[in-house]
C-alpha cells in the first residue's frame, strides 16, 4: 500500500492526543498503525523457522523478545504476537506463511483490531495499580515482561517496553481491542488525575452519571 492509502486510515484513538501529568510524572499516548500479527503454533515446531524469518527468537512464558523494530510477545503456550512497524507486517506474514507451510500454524493480521497505548513515566506503575490486579511493583513487573489481564473492565495485554532506569521512567504498552480503547484511555487518564493528568470524556457519549 502507498502513502495515499495510509492517509485514509483512522487509528482507534485518532480523536485523542497525547496527555501528560505534571512534572513528567506520566505520559499517555497512542502508538498508531503498528503492524500486529497473531501467530499460533507449537513452539517446538515453529521456533527455528520463526526466528529465521522474524529475526527475534520465540520468547519464553510471559516475556517479549526483540530484534530491531520487530518484537515477539508470548501470549500463550502456542500463541505469540509479532509487533512490527507500520506496513511491515504484511510481508512478514507472507514470508511466515511460506516458511511454515507444512507445519500446523496460523498467522492472523490483527493490526487494525488492537489499539496500542503507551504509558510512560515514574507514576505509570501507580496508575496501572488502579486498573489491574497484576503486581505492578518494579521488583515484580520488569522490562520485557508481558501479561494478559483485566484493566478495569477491559481485557488487554500489557508489555513493559522500557526499564525504570531509562530516562522518562518505565514505558508500558497496552494492546486493547479498538472498541475498548477509548474506555481504557479515559480510565487511565482518570488514574493519572492524582498527578495532574487531564480528565477525558468518553467517545461513546454515553454516561452513567446520575443527573436529576
Amino acid at each position: 500500500m502507498t502513502d495515499t492509502h495510509t492517509a485514509l486510515r483512522r487509528s482507534p484513538l485518532a480523536h485523542r492526543s497525547t496527555i501528560k501529568a505534571m512534572e513528567h510524572a506520566a505520559r499517555l499516548s497512542e502508538v498508531p498503525f503498528l503492524g500486529k500479527l497473531i501467530l499460533r503454533g507449537d513452539p517446538a515446531k515453529i521456533a527455528k523457522t520463526v526466528t529465521g524469518v522474524a529475526g527475534a527468537s520465540l520468547p519464553t512464558a510471559c516475556r517479549a523478545t526483540r530484534k530491531g523494530d520487530t518484537a515477539i510477545l508470548w501470549t500463550g503456550p502456542d500463541e505469540f504476537w509479532i509487533v512490527t512497524p507500520d506496513n511491515a507486517h504484511a510481508a512478514l506474514a507472507d514470508k511466515l506463511g511460506k516458511a511454515l507451510s507444512g507445519i500446523h500454524h496460523q498467522v492472523t493480521d490483527v493490526s487494525s483490531y488492537y489499539a496500542a497505548i503507551d504509558l510512560a513515566g515514574p507514576k505509570a506503575r501507580g496508575m496501572l495499580m488502579k486498573l489491574t490486579t497484576l503486581d505492578m511493583d518494579r521488583s515484580a513487573f520488569t522490562e520485557g515482561e508481558v501479561a494478559g489481564s483485566n484493566f478495569g473492565a477491559a481485557q488487554a495485554t500489557l508489555w513493559q517496553t522500557a526499564s525504570d532506569e531509562e530516562k522518562g521512567g518505565p514505558v508500558f504498552r497496552l494492546f486493547v481491542r479498538r472498541s475498548m480503547a477509548d474506555y481504557l484511555w479515559c480510565l487511565l487518564a482518570e488514574a493519572g488525575f492524582e498527578w495532574g493528568m487531564p480528565r477525558q470524556a468518553p467517545l461513546s457519549g454515553e454516561t452513567w452519571r446520575l443527573e436529576r
Binding site: 483512522r10 454515553e206 452519571r209
Partner: peptide, 22 residues
C-alpha cells in the same frame, strides 16, 4: 465502586464508524 462510576462505569464498545453515526 471507586473510579468505576459515571463515565467510567462500564466500557461501551463503539465501531470505527461511530462518529458518523453520532
Amino acid at each position: 465502586a471507586g473510579q468505576h462510576v459515571g463515565d467510567h462505569f462500564h466500557p461501551r464498545r463503539v465501531t470505527p464508524m461511530h462518529d458518523w453515526h453520532k
